[in-house]
Design a protein around this nucleic acid. Structure first.
Lengths: 226, 226
DNA sequence: TCCAGTCATAACCGGATTGTTACCAGCTTG
DNA sequence: CAAGCTGGTAACAATCCGGTTATGACTGGA
């Protein structure tokens, strides 16, 4: 999970980055069309936030280019009075926009909403860190490794990936995987997690991916240190 | 429900107050650092709106001071071109900002959004002084330290943090944590407090955080250092 | 038929969490 | 001073929780 912010205004860049980092998103920044595009190629972020006015080419062009290469959500930043341009941005494949000045909380809320939406699109492989899940093929990629997983394991990973870096409550996992109501069977979940951990080679004591949050639930770790 | 507006510009104060009163919010005003802080103590508003330029001390300092004492939402007012300072404001615990000139409707909308968000005790960590509780992860941060806590301890801290600096009666704690009726079991509370104190390393005789108010209840101390 | 994969169920272990009982010290009150 | 309250501390037991292992039912394919 990683975000890219492109804006030539250093102050705005600082505000946006700070708000997102506060919300525990890793952030990569760039300040021009060229560096933005390069950063996108190098970092492969899960979401891009673009200002419209950029040196070296407009944010519109960058938006169009990125959309052709990737289906990561794109959010545009516009100044007041540029509302008319938004139609263009949306036509070029932007997913959302914010008008300056905007509230940091709004920004974070919108970003989360976009990521959630992007994560729930069923068929396309979902990613987080070095994990990549293809729910159709029941295939989990960890870096180079390709691991076959079962339907239940896939559903478990779906929800965890969609909420990567956040705790997912036991009950929510139960409902999502089995459709049980609360108070369902925790033993099933124990087993499922155990088998999955065996497959990917994860140690519950020192988890690289599946962290246990006692009496709460499980969490998929992002930025699994080096 | 009450709002505090601090600004040295009488016209701005009038405009903001009028807009908020039109939206049927009770408004208290102040025009300097000192009077603002005094008003905050006296009135205990649910939200504070601070200008950055204040006689007697900057809005930043006031923001920092208020955030240490309370977790009421804080909105900063800035002139255009001061965006660089916004990062500082956010670091100090501000929740939102508006760039002058702004429309009254925007102001009211933002205020409502902040209050709504503050009302629902959601996922964001609650803070008071150097304590920061993430009830979701069952994690308590004290400065640099990160301490895992139990569900019961989390509930206890929730109520204490929400009333930081004020005594919370034993009965209220009992009801909030266990759902007991009045006259419940005080021993449970004694144990809970004791175990929590051990975890965070607090001395009942010389409490840095959890102060005992004999035959009344407990209180979470704010700004205990020095 | 056999076999392998998948999944539900149960049992066991160790540690964490929580409830219970007991004891001690300080304070107030009669 | 004695009685009764309070709060802090300790020790213990019951329970919960997560990880692990084992087993059997069911399935689809060879």
């Amino acid at each position: 999970m990683k975000l890219l912010v492109v804006d030539d205004d250093a102050d705005m860049l600082a505000v946006v980055s700070f708000a997102l980092r506060q919300a525990s998103f890793p952030v990569v920044t760039a300040n021009s069309y060229g560096t933005g595009l390069a950063a996108f190629h190098a970092e492969r972020p899960d979401l891009a936030i673009l200002d419209i006015n950029l040196p070296g080419g407009s944010g519109f062009e960058l938006c169009g280019v990125l959309r052709r290469e990737s289906n990561a959500p794109i959010m545009m930043l516009t100044a007041r009075g540029e509302e008319a341009d938004l139609v263009r941005a949306l036509e070029l494949g932007a997913d959302d926009y914010l008008t300056k000045p905007f509230s940091p909380r709004t920004l974070v809320a919108r970003v989360k909403a976009l990521l959630r939406r992007a994560g729930q699109e069923g068929s396309s492989p979902t990613r987080a860190g070095d994990l990549s899940l293809d729910a159709e093929l029941l295939l989990l990629r960890i870096g180079e490794r390709e691991i076959r997983i079962t339907p239940l394991e896939s559903r478990l990973l779906q929800l965890l990936l969609a909420n990567a870096g956040q705790v997912v409550h036991t009950d929510r996992l139960l409902v999502h995987v089995w459709g049980h109501r609360g108070g369902g069977d925790r033993q099933l979940l124990k087993q499922l997690v155990h088998r999955l951990r065996q497959k990917i080679g994860d140690d519950p004591e020192q988890p690289r991916w599946l962290a246990t949050i006692p009496s709460v639930g499980y969490m998929l770790r992002v930025t699994p240190q080096s």
